[in-house]
Design a protein around this nucleic acid. Sequence first.
DNA 1: CCAGAATGCGAGCGACCACTCGCGTTTGTC
DNA 2: GACAAACGCGAGTGGTCGCTCGCATTCTGG
Lengths: 222, 222
Amino acid sequence: MPEKTEKPATETTTAAAEDRPRRRQARGERRITQLLEAAATVFATTGYTAASTNAIAREAGVSPGTLYQFFPNKEAIAIELGGRLMHEMRQSYDEVLSPIDPAVTPIEEAITGTVDRFIEFNCLHPAFFVLMHGPDIPGRIAEEHDALHTTLVTRVETLLAPFVPDAPAPAVTRTAQMCVGIYKAGLELILAHEGAEREAYIQELKDVLLRYLRPLAEGVVY
Amino acid sequence: MPEKTEKPATETTTAAAEDRPRRRQARGERRITQLLEAAATVFATTGYTAASTNAIAREAGVSPGTLYQFFPNKEAIAIELGGRLMHEMRQSYDEVLSPIDPAVTPIEEAITGTVDRFIEFNCLHPAFFVLMHGPDIPGRIAEEHDALHTTLVTRVETLLAPFVPDAPAPAVTRTAQMCVGIYKAGLELILAHEGAEREAYIQELKDVLLRYLRPLAEGVVY
DNA sequence: CCAGAATGCGAGCGACCACTCGCGTTTGTC
DNA sequence: GACAAACGCGAGTGGTCGCTCGCATTCTGG
């Protein structure tokens, strides 16, 4: 991996926020989103490491040089793409994961709503799954991935907490971790199928989570 | 990928079964297992694609040329390693997954026994998980992976079948798929922890599967 | 003990890939 | 309309990696 330019941290003088206050033109912004879309499809089909920057540029219909006009390196593409998808996801998921009162919303509804929302998002943006769950991903993105994962786990914990008021914290964490893992596993199956079969797997995932969590909500301890 | 030598099929004269009836010496066999062990550790730490053949040779303390004395290419190393692990696994799992009678063995025991056996094997051979669940894996190994996966699913299906005699086949398949997926997810969590925490996650995985499957065994349909 | 095969070496080859550079084109600004 | 900056190109560069080749060393059968 040629990493020659060590980015000598040219934070030289001015109090300017960015090191290079590159003024983007409208054309440039368009190219960026275009390149990001191309990257999304290439990442989704081949994975991150196997995706070549040349392939992304080709997919976008531009030259490799043009690509590097807007992104300093391959990782930055994934970072930016991941960031934008994360942002878009938060919009969907802040409404769903936060405001839940076990007295009002039964656990069945909480699970169904959350799962539906996440499934929809991931079906719409298959690259997100690749970037966030792909194991061949280098440093910086892995950090974002971890951040998302822990955020997700914490959210599930707070979602779970009111249902199990008298459970020790580590146990709740484990349950939340399992939930996220189960969700990931289910998502993979769901993305691998289409139509009625996909719907059936969605239902199956809900069943798993429901049967797993309902005993907790009912205070049953086996 | 440089694939120059097209193996000109030097089936020159004799009706020998193999193209090269290479007589291995004891030293060679030792080198092979040594290289395979080295490959296992390198694969387990860096994944398949990121693992360089030179790194494997270095880990084994031999030169790259020596490595290619015993394996035609990088893929063959993974194939052979995967094959040996598969073989070793079958020994553990044929005893567990086959002979189960729901009248004699309750579902709790079936789950516990199966999970324990598989967990143990995967903890012992972390490279197996990487080779079988890594997404950066080229053609041939992916085939073996798929073969293992479907075998696993089929086994779980037959394991499940006696508990749900009147369920439609596709539904059983879906349930089996979910079980395998859940197991994979749980395994990842288990491998990521140690000691008491690991044990707790093992228990958690068993709980998930148990709560998921018990309603089926009891004929309860939500 | 001695041919010949198996084993061992490591510099090097070719292909690929992330990334660059010089130069031409378009766009915004005064 | 003129100047600068942003945009666009694509051949080229350095580096890594899978793999080879010629040659030295060790083993094995007769």
